[in-house]
Amino acid sequence: MFEIVSTEELGPRIKRFEIKAPLVARKIKPGQFIMLRIDDNGERIPLTMVDHDAEAGTVTIIFEEVGKTTIQLGKLKTGDELLDFIGPLGAYHDMTGGEHGRVIGVGGGIGNAPLLPKVSEFHEQGLEVTGIIGARSKEILILEDEIKAACDTLHICTDDGSHGHHGFVSDVLKQLLDESTDYDFVLAIGPPIMMKVCRDLVKPYGVPCYVSLNTIMVDGTGMCGSCRVSVGDEVKFACVDGPEMRGEEIDFEEMMARQRRYVDEEQCALERYLKEVGE
């Protein structure tokens, strides 16, 4: 069993948990993820490591309550335990900069959570980091201060203009690239549509673009192929080849269609759960 040692609400339906998992904490690196199962009837869901403390033996995750499992997770309290917590999973990509020593990190919505450990790592490596983070509106924009601390410059965007630039992260990204293309790479993490837009936008500038894929997973160890994506002529498994990978040739349309495979079943599971807990 894996104890929840702290919980915190970061915004409406967005929570940060610290989990006691010493073996995972010792090894996990930015960009890698864990899978957890709350109880024996539950589904295994993937969540990205946001922070880890090898000494204290803890791993921090941040999640948005979007369906049965994440809603159930959100009801747990400090001291409660998770049945399974598996990791580290996924490949670690050392994206150490190149000739320019400058990189851009773009985060959208809940994607700002996985972005944080990445930009922090870039910062520690001595890279000049420009951050662009966005959300629908101010109260669901998470981790602004933490990301700011890791960036040399930080741009903030909200869809409704309640904070920072009124518009999408891609607008700011375009402006930056128009001014200069002296960046080693762009890393974009967020909803698939945002990553696709960023990828398409960056391509003509000739700057490499990384993304982090959130495909539907079962095992997270490369044995089922649920997470497969088309990358050029190849098929890759996001759980072992990724989740981070070069974005240029990823077939995002296919990936987005595949993410909707179980919408009806997910809805049923959610309704059944809400009835069970009387909501």
């Binding site: 009837n41 589904e43 295994r44 079962v218 095992d219 044995m223 089922c224 192929g225 599971a269």
Partner: peptide, 23 residues
């Protein structure tokens, strides 16, 4: 592997009691 893992290990054949979907 995916089809059988969902059904067996994750017990998707019993959707009234288990969360993992299958189709």
């Amino acid at each position: 592997n995916e089809f059988l893992t969902r059904a067996n290990l994750m017990r998707a054949y019993d959707p009234d009691n288990y969360d993992t979907p299958t189709w």
